[in-house]
Amino acid sequence: MTETLGMSGYGIYVWSTFALTATVLVYNEWAARRRFRSVYRDIEVRIKALENRS
């Protein structure tokens, strides 16, 4: 087990790269969802305000 995780001495390079990859994937998902929520909320606020006025 320790041998596998050690990656014959290159563990620090291999694992940091895969950790960075996971971070980039999670960031992309999070950023795309956050963008949708913020756009949706802006439109919702504006339309609801128009609705209430009429």
Partner: peptide, 18 residues
């Protein structure tokens, strides 16, 4: 998101939000 932002003033978006 981009389509929604660009089409914010159209009827289909209004219906979608309401």
């Amino acid at each position: 998101s981009e389509v929604l932002r660009r089409e914010g003033r159209t009827r289909w978006v209004r219906e979608l939000v309401l």
